[in-house]
């Protein structure tokens, strides 16, 4: 098994980023970074700006203030709802991501086969997304995200809506991929098992900012009221103040 190498190279740098939608300020000057080979778990209650951050990193959105630096031309994103193109087969969905590299048919086929076998879907090359189960769609989305061997991989709720067994399988892929590719990863999730198993460092977001940072082990022991409440699922605490 390859051991991930954490270098000092910052693959993603978020510096004092602010983002608003209309009058609603979603991000309020958040800053953090992710190094090569590192898996950062981005956790927090719904609506705190986690998915918005992923869209800023993939340039689907632009920040109002602050800077988002991405030190890789290739970024893979595993979407929450898989986001596979329904009019294309599994093979065509992966081929679309490879299209701009203008590979030969043989090379293209070999990469697609390799990535699909990584997620255990070699037999579903010609299936359409609507013919796949939720877990298979998620794995196809995973294969599509890594088809160009990106040095940055973003996971948006990778295990939400999946049964515990499939969640574990997806988490294993994430760990295995991190170890093999040395890619920097951000894992946006609500699932306790996902961030405790897959993340090496955890950043808790609340109300558009970061309120706690540390390892998953520290997260379970900390006295920080936000982290304590989120990690243990307490109703009492500062996280829901003013919301319910």
């Amino acid at each position: 098994m390859a051991i991930p190498v954490h270098t000092d190279q910052k693959m993603i740098e978020i510096d004092q980023v602010e983002k608003s939608f209309g009058s609603h300020r979603v991000l309020k000057g958040i800053s953090f970074h992710v190094r090569a080979g590192e898996r950062l778990g981005l956790i927090g209650p719904s609506g705190c700006g986690k998915s918005t951050l992923l869209k800023l990193i993939t340039h689907l959105l632009e920040p109002d203030r602050g800077t988002v630096t991405v030190n890789s031309p290739e970024v893979g994103l595993v979407f929450q709802g898989s986001a596979l193109l329904n009019s294309l087969t599994v093979r065509e969905n992966l081929a679309l991501a490879l299209r701009r590299r203008k590979l030969s048919k043989k090379d293209e086929e070999s990469i697609i086969q390799e990535k699909l076998s990584f997620v255990g879907l070699s037999d579903f090359l010609n299936a359409y997304p609507t013919q796949l189960s939720g877990g298979q769609q998620k794995r196809t989305s995973f294969a599509r995200a890594i088809v160009n061997d990106p040095k940055i991989i973003l996971y948006d709720e990778p295990t939400t809506g999946l049964d515990p067994v499939m969640s574990t399988i997806i988490e294993d892929y994430m760990i295995k991929l991190g170890e093999e590719s040395n890619a920097a990863a951000i894992i946006v999730t609500h699932q306790y098992s996902t961030w405790t198993r897959t993340a090496e460092r955890v950043l808790l977001m609340h109300d558009g900012g970061a309120v706690w940072e540390g390892t998953p082990e520290e997260a379970l022991k900390t006295d920080n009221p936000f982290m304590r409440q989120f990690a243990h699922g307490y109703k009492e605490g500062p996280m829901l103040e003013g919301l319910i």
Binding site: K55, T58, H59, L60, V75, G76, L77, F79, Q80, G81, A83, L84, L85, N86, L96, A97, R99, R100, R144
Partner: peptide, 16 residues
């Protein structure tokens, strides 16, 4: 439907 299900975002991320 493609917009709502993030398929268009997926295209942009793949630089299509």
């Amino acid at each position: 439907t493609m917009m709502i299900t993030e398929q268009i975002d997926a295209l942009k991320v793949m630089r299509v």
